[in-house]
Design a protein around this nucleic acid. Sequence first.
DNA 1: TCTGGGGTCCTAGGACCC
DNA 2: TCTGGGGTCCTAGGACCC
Length: 442
Amino acid sequence: MKIVGLLDCNSFFASCEKVFHPAWEHRPVVVLSNNDGCVVARSPEAKKLGIAMGVPYFQIKNFAAANNIVVCSSNYSLYGDMSHRVMQTITKWTADVEIYSIDESFLDLTGRFLRCGQRAEVEWSLELEDELAKLAREIVETVPRWTGIPVAFGLGPTKTLAKAANRIAKKRDDHFCSLLDAGQRDELLKTLDIADVWGVGRNLLTQFTRLGLASAFDLARVDPLWMRQNYSVVQEKLVRELRGERCLELIELPQPRQNIQVSRSFGRMLESLDELEQALATFASRGALRLRKEKTVASALCVQLYTNRFRTDLPQYMPAMTIGFGRPTNSTPEIISLALSIGRQIWREGYAYKRAKILLLDTVNETVACQQKMLFEPDTKYNDERREKERCLMQAVDLINRRAGQGRLFFAAEGTTPAWQPNQAFVSPCYTTRWEDIPTAK
DNA sequence: TCTGGGGTCCTAGGACCC
DNA sequence: TCTGGGGTCCTAGGACCC
């Protein structure tokens, strides 16, 4: 048996905001999505008040004011840095960690409990369970003490069971639950709603409910082969994992991304092509920077425009177009140039645009792409000399921005006072990532 | 007035090839 | 008039996750 743990930060974004406002400790706090659109995080107090996940802010605005709810715009620099601190803390207990999302990590604790003669798996015993409970207590106490972020911890022999244990742990006072003991597992899985099982989304929930399945325990008893025939290999693995059979491995090395997308809603609707172009140039520039950070190049670019789908009184138009680069690239000017060219081709007069998206597709490692390039004849506009010049230029730009602050140097096409700027009325300072914002103690 | 953003994986079906 | 079979690759769409 393997020992898989899942550590999950409670109400992560809201908890991050609370760390720097001790006075908010017992107050309801909600964090809004980009553009102050929807509620994406709620402190326990806010949940208790009945604020639903994903609810549009304007629908609860008055309620929030009347109930003394703290409202925050999202501040991803802060959350990213706090996440990093939590993940660093985890390495105290094991180096075998898969960072699954900004607020969750899988831990492989098997290595800590291997006895002489055991190679890669351990045998379950009461003593082991005791030791693990002790370790879990240490984790659940240490992470908040070191970072200010409260966490819940679940243990299981598979990732899916660790996730399930974590869901149960969240409701417990000690924030811990173990599903390692096969003897007790069934009873615990009966208490877990099938909707809370990892891999059961809205659609599967409807279908499973129709089949009469209500709990995680019910799902675990379905025949895996039947599952495969009627659904797919994904759901088959889901059932097997719930039965304690490992199908999903921990991915400790982050896999290179295959696509990069940058998409934002605008602060207001845009009708002119000029204004829209500034948004596209900015998104293209951000995407290009991400490519360079990952040392990858993209093979193609897709641009999509969206009108406001909630304004049914207005004409709707959602065009998209994909064009390949002559050769895979991560050069900002080249990507901006293609993004604008596509934008001009799909833009139509007479529509009010609310959102745009760029997708950098089929990304591959820079050096691999470089080795392959000799197979192709250089195209006319972008010859090797120009590529090399732009590569040096981007290196210089990135260096300056790293030293002087992101966005110090930018391309004119991005505009100086962009009309698309999202609304962020309640944004908190970057307490941990900007010198000017470091809190002072009085 | 105001409604988020960024990912992955799998399957079915068509195109194409021999 | 009659018209096979098997494989691969690509894409769109649908499901999921946080």
